[in-house]
Design a protein around this nucleic acid. Structure first.
Lengths: 253, 253
DNA sequence: CTATAACTGCGATCGGTGTTCGCAGTTATA
DNA sequence: TATAACTGCGAACACCGATCGCAGTTATAG
């Protein structure tokens, strides 16, 4: 990788090619498209350099002419998805409403690309579209009296919750079915033991739901026969509450 | 895997061994300990079956006598961490205060085991300790007028936020340093272009912060010279707000 | 027009991963 | 004592991300 030897390593900072050699057969955008296509079909794990190369009809090692690593490919995919959110909707001036609308559109993208929730969240994964998205959210937060840091954090929390909900509501990847069912079985049996009365009560009507303790939380409001509309309602409801809490003026200053 | 052929697959449902053959040389707990030790040192990626086997001084394939897959090993690790949280603290009866205390203790575990934030969040990753943790949280939420589902969701949101903050504040894994710095460089240059005024303003004093758009959100309040105490304060502040919002009686019913 | 430098595509290959299989050895039961 | 159940594990399989060097192509420099 000659062009990366210098100093900068971000995919987005890489300059266009020189004029010397033959033109590259594909675009980075084509790379991203192929990867997204694969991920939409088979999940993030289906996105291997070999698979992407086959999808594009090129040799595997050729991919490294466009991208320095698989992680860069994930950057491309993530930003492509961010580009689907759309940041042209006019703002009403009501931060909570505007962010809620943005959250809804982001959620839609997550539904379309369930693998988004599986992309390992790096501390800073912002491409051009990601920047636009963040800018839009900050613009929506402008009427607020929050600190810059607080605003950024509010957006981060919002996005974290969106990913959280997206994970919860996703259909289940066929392969995980067995595992998921097994874990539900365990939950049911453990609750049946009778040593978790509050849990038993909370799960009362619905079948299986849960939130893992140590890691990132998970929950599911489904089990018996939930309709998506209800899930969406739950999403909007919870999100509005959290956004209201986050955008309220800070009593400490 | 004879014992798994039947039906159930969860690690936690697997019965004790029969009395026929020689006793197993290690415990599942020892497995978990070794894995946790490795993860504490080198991150989640350091936890490979080969490494764990070497750490234990056994052959690699022997691990599959204790565990059906690497994912089961992650279950063991996660639940071991969940066991460190502690659910013996008495409840005050104030849901927000109790949950905030619980969140603080959970956060401490995340600080001690930064890899927790990297464990792929499955829809249902609850071991025995995870169940106890959830039960404790639900008990804290008992005075509330929330639905069972709403309570579970509140806990899930809380855990998601904890993981979010944990990711934000973690030191940076040495190997990612270069990548991280590169991305900060990109952010700085992009902002310097002048086409993201709100972003520029929000990042005003501090150096680099961000929240990715498509995937799960990320943020960083650090940059110039932040102290951990401030981060902790930010954590408690945000958490209290969100918890207050989530536990307030639902106007819809 | 030629030489050269820059660029592309890619086969071969390396070290690593999770997982499976079958075999030798061990132990308690029948 | 024979057998069934269990353990540990070496060897192997298929896949993974990444690297290296080479042949072929193209625009520029002399």
């Amino acid at each position: 990788m000659s062009w990366v030897a210098e100093e900068q390593e971000s995919v987005w900072l890489r300059p266009g090619r020189g004029t010397r050699g033959p033109a590259a057969g594909r675009t980075r955008a084509e790379l991203a498209d192929a990867a997204v296509r694969l991920a939409d079909r088979g999940g993030l794990e289906a996105v291997s350099m070999r698979q992407v190369a086959r999808e594009l009809g090129v040799g595997q090692s050729s991919l490294y002419r466009y991208v320095a690593s698989r992680d860069d490919l994930l950057d491309l995919m993530t930003d492509a998805a961010a580009g689907e959110i759309g940041v042209d909707a006019p703002l009403t001036g009501e931060p909570v409403e505007d962010l809620l609308a943005l959250a809804d559109r982001t959620r839609a993208v997550h539904v379309r690309h369930p693998w988004l929730a599986d992309v390992p969240p790096e501390p800073l994964r912002l491409g051009p579209h990601g920047l636009d998205h963040l800018e839009y959210a900050l613009r929506a937060l402008a009427p607020t009296a929050l600190t810059g840091a607080a605003k950024v954090e509010a957006v981060a929390v919002m996005n974290a919750l969106i990913a959280q909900f997206a994970r919860t509501e996703r259909p289940g990847a066929d392969a995980d079915r067995a595992r998921r069912r097994a874990q539900e079985t365990y939950l049911r049996r453990a609750v049946a033991e009778g040593r978790h009365p509050y849990l038993a009560e909370a799960l009362g009507g619905a079948a299986a739901s849960g939130a893992d303790a140590g890691g990132s939380g998970e929950s599911a409001a489904n089990g018996g026969g939930p309709d998506v509309a209800d899930a969406h309602g739950m999403f909007r409801h919870t999100m509005r509450r959290v956004l209201t809490a986050l955008t309220a003026p800070d009593p400490r200053g």
